[in-house]
């Protein structure tokens, strides 16, 4: 009896919300200036070409993806996720296989291509500081950023468990880049403990910009594109690319997404040489399409993460994909302590 009522209610609900024809799809990313750029470089062009309206949602939330896939009610079509998550979720069967008949992968940097994902953009975690608040001489190295006597006050780091902060802590503690993996978590957390009370966590890119611009946290670790955007608004930002830590975002399609075919077409446009060039120009992140460089302003091209002369450390996406859950568990328990 209860069951039949539920069915009736469900039927009523379906009637109530009859899904519109596929005239729209949903793109989910991290919000703020990055998503604005993605909208301009990809979504608006896609709409112009196909007349399909692309709804913007966000921020990306892996729990939501899991809940949607488990319930079979998936309303995100293309999602911008972190590279390590893409590898892991693909292996767990949470993602649709990409259709490489639609998406041309021959021109894409192969480091960022799997059966389930292609690169979205390529970024570096770098050191940034508010030069108005601390002067031109800000922290140069990760060791500086972890040194509270040389640089007193608050510093901001990425809140979520993801490639970046742990690597920075180990580098600050003197681990050489070639010895970084497998990650020595005990050592990393011990190093992080030394500055824990001085950390303000940023949970999204826009928040990191706000913290730095208001000098709420006058230094910290940032996605390089967010500092580029911040400088463009006239804030006096200093940055250091010393041992910048690179990682890539990926574009994925959650399993049983409602508009799978549209999603493939969208990704094809987003990873095209022009799509990647426009995105890179707008954000200061590097393109994943090897042909994009030619379409960009040469001077600007030189400032992007993949052209930086400073020493660079690549975060190991495969390592992270394998250990994501256990690191996450320790990370959040440590944060809550």
């Amino acid at each position: 009896m209860r069951k039949s009522f539920i069915m009736a209610a469900a039927a009523a609900a379906i009637a109530f919300t009859a899904p519109a024809f596929a005239t729209e799809m949903v793109f989910t990313s991290w919000g703020g200036t990055t998503q604005d750029a993605q909208k301009a470089a990809w979504a608006d062009k896609f709409t112009a070409e196909t007349k399909i309206n692309v709804l913007q949602d966000g921020p990306t939330d892996y729990g939501k993806i899991k809940a949607m896939v488990e319930s079979g009610n998936v309303n995100w079509d293309v999602v911008d996720v972190e590279g390590d998550y893409a590898v892991q979720a693909g292996n767990k069967g949470m993602l649709e296989k990409l259709d490489f008949k639609v998406i041309d992968k021959s021109k894409l940097d192969p480091r960022f291509v799997t059966d389930y994902s292609v690169g979205s953009f390529y970024y570096s975690f770098i050191i940034g500081f508010n030069a108005d608040a601390v002067g031109a001489e800000g922290p140069k190295t990760w060791a500086d950023l972890f040194d509270t006597t040389k640089f007193p006050g608050k510093r901001t780091f990425y809140k979520w468990s993801a490639p970046g902060v742990i690597e920075a802590a180990l580098l600050a503690d003197g681990v050489t880049p070639d010895k970084l993996y497998p990650l020595d978590l005990d050592r990393a957390f011990k190093k992080l403990d030394t500055i824990k009370k001085d950390i303000i966590w940023w949970s999204g890119g826009a928040q990191s910009q706000q913290l730095l611009a208001s000098a709420e946290a006058p230094y910290g670790m940032f996605w390089n594109g967010r500092l580029t955007a911040l400088k463009a608004t006239g804030v006096n930002v200093g940055e250091s690319w010393e041992q910048n830590i690179t990682a890539a975002d990926a574009l994925v399609v959650p399993k049983s997404a409602k508009n799978r075919d549209l999603a493939m077409k969208f990704i094809a446009l987003a990873t095209s040489a022009q799509g990647q060039a426009d995105m890179a120009t707008a954000t200061g992140y590097a393109p994943v399409n090897t042909q994009s460089g030619q379409l960009m302003d040469a001077a600007l091209r030189k400032t992007l993460p993949d052209q930086q002369g400073a020493s660079q450390v690549n975060a190991d996406m495969r390592y992270w994909a394998e250990h994501r859950d256990e690191i996450g568990e320790r990370w959040y328990a440590w944060q809550a302590k």
């Binding site: 939330d61 892996y62 729990g63 899991k66 809940a67 488990e70 966590w201 944060q335 809550a336």
Partner: peptide
């Protein structure tokens, strides 16, 4: 609040939303 003083309601939301 900060990460060090989470309250139960947020914890429940996190269990369900982020960790499923």
């Amino acid at each position: 609040g900060g990460t060090a003083n989470m309250m139960v309601a947020e914890m429940i939301a996190q269990f369900v939303q982020s960790l499923v």
